[in-house]
Design a binder for these strands. Structure first.
Length: 447
RNA sequence: GUGAUUGUAGCUCAGUUGGUUAGAGCGCCGGAUUGUGGUUCCGGAGGCCGCGGGUUCAAAUCCCGUCUUUCACCCCA
């Protein structure tokens, strides 16, 4: 008999953790719905042909692959097997994989159901995804994403609406954040005017690390990738601009860059006339890794906490194109529930009242009273009250200890006295105060 | 994927140059106390010392492998 275990990077959750997580999910879901997003569901497994090539080489390596059923080795690529060529062998023994995010499956869904849905289409999904990453703080192999996307509209109002949505989610969760905004086209424009656009993705990846490794770090990293030092220096200078006007001037020779600037301006036309509680700031150094973003990009950072981004998103102009449906633009945001959980835990933002939904536990003194107590519980439940009962008339001390440790706000005590009088003993578990109440009063009190 | 790091009771951790039957605190169970929960006292249960191999008369301890944990990088939520 060996000790049981779970795979690396996965976790079990205790009841308290589940209720905290549900609090986050419920908050986010209700705001998604409020903004008009509709829930959809897709399988946890997708065909590998759907997933591969969408997240770059790095992403492909992090895909969990599902072994084919049956005698897969007999059907395997025998040459690849002999030569121990893993990547070629994989394609012959695995045709499915676990989803890596919710956006690519969504693009696939849109293409497959294009005749059944109405554009612009707004959908949300709160589901687990899997990545074969090395686990680290705030990084797991199985984690939840909370996504909202809209496809089929080019309007910058969508970006503005998502910003409001982000603002509302973090206000509701009481996490102070800074919402960083940039546009991939502006970033490309900077690369272009500095002659670095031929290696744009290398450029973007390094820039994204600017706050971590500093200008020197970026410089040496890019020089190592054979980009011209003079161009890098100029780019670093441009990236330090924090206002749009000088940026516009600097990018005037880049058509793409100017397009990006005008998109950001249009975005500000929407966002500047509405209020938002959290800081929204333009940050030219924001790049984001996922290669499919093409327009505005967002990233949300919690203030006063050492933690990676807790939400991110942006516009992707042609994600459905790879599945054969051209010209459909989408924009979306993804909340990282696990990191939000960690941040809230660190800041002490979970409140007991929000999490405890069972109102009371009923404790019975003896077997006779236990049956009577059960009837009272059924009556309360029929009235819609969440209430629990200790399943046996055990020693009273044991029962009240159970109630205490289970953090029930109230205990309803029922013995022969209560049964005779019809008045139940109500005990406030935090103050210890007791009173006699009729079933009717209790029901009234908790509904 | 690269480089480190961790693993002993449910939890946090001791465990001497390798040497009898592996310990503590907390928690858990029972009792003191048959109608009252954070206290006290008494008693008890609970260990393939992560797993597999090797060295040795002898391994929790040394060596190799493997899994897991945490951390940095890569990348990312």
């Amino acid at each position: 008999m060996s000790k049981p275990s779970i795979p690396k990077g996965t976790r079990d959750f205790l009841p308290e953790q589940v209720s905290k997580r549900n609090y986050i999910f419920d908050t986010i879901r209700s705001i998604f719905i409020k903004y008009g997003y509709k829930g959809i569901a897709t399988p946890v497994m997708e065909n590998l042909s759907t997933l591969t090539g969408k997240y770059g080489d790095e992403g492909d390596q992090l895909l969990f692959k599902v072994l084919n059923n049956g005698d897969y080795l007999a059907k395997a690529d025998q040459n690849a097997l002999q030569e121990k060529d893993s990547s070629r062998l994989t394609s012959s023994i695995s045709k499915r994989g676990l989803r890596y995010d919710l956006t690519v499956p969504f693009a696939r869904y849109v293409v497959m159901h294009q005749n059944d849905i109405q554009f612009p289409f707004k959908r949300y999904a709160i589901e687990p995804v899997w990545r074969a990453d090395r686990p680290q703080k705030g990084r797991y192999q199985e984690f939840y994403q909370c996504d909202a996307d809209v496809v089929g509209s080019n309007s910058l109002m969508c970006e503005a609406e998502l910003t409001c949505l982000i603002d509302e989610v973090y206000s509701a969760l009481k996490i102070p954040v800074i919402i960083k905004v940039n546009n991939r086209k502006v970033l490309f424009g900077i690369a272009e005017v500095c002659g670095l656009h031929h290696q744009f993705s290398d450029f973007a990846v390094s820039i994204d690390k600017l706050d971590k490794i500093g200008q020197k770090g970026v410089l040496s990293e890019l020089i190592q990738k054979n980009l011209p030092e003079e161009g890098i220096q100029r780019a670093l200078h441009l990236l330090s601009l924090t206002a749009l006007a000088p940026m516009e001037e600097a990018l005037s020779s880049s058509e793409t860059g100017m397009k990006g600037i005008s998109e950001l301006k249009e975005y500000h036309n929407y966002i500047d006339v509405v209020g938002h509680k959290n800081e929204v700031s333009f940050d030219a150094t924001l790049a984001r890794g996922l290669s499919y973003y093409t327009g505005c990009i967002f990233e949300v950072k919690a203030k006063n906490v050492q933690m990676g981004s807790i939400a991110g998103g942006g516009r992707y102009d042609d994600l459905t194109g790879v599945f054969g449906m051209k010209g459909v633009s989408g924009v979306g945001i993804s909340f990282g529930a696990e990191r939000i959980y960690d941040v809230m835990e660190e800041l002490g933002l979970f409140e007991d009242e929000e999490l405890m939904n069972v109102k009371a536990i009923v404790l019975a003194m003896d077997p006779e009273s236990h049956k009577y107590a059960f009837a009272q519980v059924v009556a309360m439940r029929n009235a819609g009250i969440a209430v629990d009962i200790y399943p046996e008339p055990a020693k009273f001390k044991k029962q009240i200890k159970y109630a205490h440790q289970g953090k029930y706000p109230y205990a309803v005590i029922i013995g022969t006295d209560e049964q005779a009088s019809g008045l139940l003993t109500l005990k406030n578990m935090s103050t210890g105060d007791q009173s006699k109440e009729s079933l009717k009063t209790l029901i009234k009190m908790w509904t």
